[in-house]
Amino acid sequence: MAILELLYYAEHMREHLGEFEQIVLLALLRLGENAYGVPVRREIEQRTGRSLTVGALYRTLDRLEEKGYVSSRLGDPVRERGGRAKRYFRVEALGLRSLRQTQRELAAMWEGIDLKKAHHVL
């Protein structure tokens, strides 16, 4: 099983996280157990200032789940949602590893960069 996981991991390591996928995973980590659509979207909008559509968020979450980076579970139906259940998400081990990898890569690229001194090459 460990070998399979490693192979699976190795396969996925070749796929890099998109920028928005990173943001969504980080929002899930921040929210912990209470991470479903509404607070995730609110967290992202408040911290990044971006306006985010519900459809875009759920498409990303679905893609992350397909890749195995997150898993989801259904909550109970809620009256405020017209009797619909909440879908809670949590970041899985694969997702955590991918985030660490991305963080290392970005840190490596950022190292030594001072934006104030940066100049353009025409």
């Binding site: 659509g37 619909r84 879908r87």
Partner: peptide, 12 residues
């Protein structure tokens, strides 16, 4: 996906 999105919209 539409169901979950609709639930979020109704809640908001």
């Amino acid at each position: 996906i539409a169901e979950y999105a609709l639930g979020d919209l109704l809640e908001e």
